[in-house]
């Protein structure tokens, strides 16, 4: 245990980076996931096609490949961005596919009559989605979304492989000095578990508030 306490500042800094990665890519993935879901249920065939292609593409590519491609490939074509920002964008883009899939199952669970009634009243497609269909869809997908969010938390550790000094990278560095992998990585693992538990709590509450705000 003392090895963890001895290197508390390193662990703390790594944890902060992991939290930043998680929170920022959550936010990005949620917004993008909503957009992709709206496209997938839209009456316009082209938008539906794009939405479906998006989900299929990113569900069939490994996140690590995308991270490596973005971090090492983008500078090659002249796009230079902060490493952390690049990682956030890539994780958000990737996880949005899973959020879109979860949201769509929720939209399908809402009876067609709800959207029809909204449109019959003169709401546009977007308004009926926003005020009628999605609030009810969210209620049914709190659990699956929570699971996506937790998977996302774990997936942020892949950013360590492209040089982001997150909790995993910090643990790795400490281990190179101390050579005590078991307490170091068990400690890091517990920290991830704690973050995941918090994410679960926060998203659950957030969605319930979204639902009641209608």
């Amino acid at each position: 245990m003392s090895v963890l306490l001895d290197h508390l500042p390193e662990f703390w800094e790594g944890l902060v980076v992991t939290l930043q990665l998680t929170a920022a890519s959550f936010a990005g993935a949620a917004v993008l996931g909503l957009v992709v879901t709206s496209m997938r249920v839209s009456p316009v065939a082209v938008l539906r096609g794009i939405g479906t292609a998006y989900v299929e593409t990113f569900q069939n590519l490994p996140l690590l490949v995308l991270l490596v491609l973005a971090v090492f490939g983008l500078p090659e074509i002249g796009i230079k961005a902060d490493l952390l920002v690049t990682a956030v964008v890539v994780i958000a883009v990737y996880e949005a596919a899973y959020i879109a899939e979860a949201l769509r199952s929720g939209v399908n669970a809402v009876s067609a009559g709800q959207g029809e009634a909204a449109r019959a009243l003169g709401l546009t497609f977007g308004q009926s989605l926003r005020h009628v269909v999605l609030p009810q869809a969210l209620r049914t997908v709190i659990q699956p979304l929570g699971n996506v969010f937790i998977a996302l938390t774990m997936n942020t550790s892949l950013a360590a492989a492209v040089g982001v000094v997150d909790l995993t990278a910090a643990a790795n560095r400490v281990n190179l000095i101390e050579a005590q992998p078991i307490p170091i990585f068990v400690g890091a693992g517990l920290a991830y578990a704690l973050v995941a538990a918090c994410v679960g709590l926060v998203t659950g509450r957030l969605e319930r508030r979204l639902v009641t705000a209608g």
């Binding site: 009876s111 009559g113 709800q114 029809e116 009634a117 909204a118 609030p135 009810q136 209620r139 209608g214």
Partner: peptide, 9 residues
């Protein structure tokens, strides 16, 4: 509508 379709939420 036959099935009312009130917004359930």
């Amino acid at each position: 509508f036959q099935s009312f379709n009130l917004f359930q939420h």
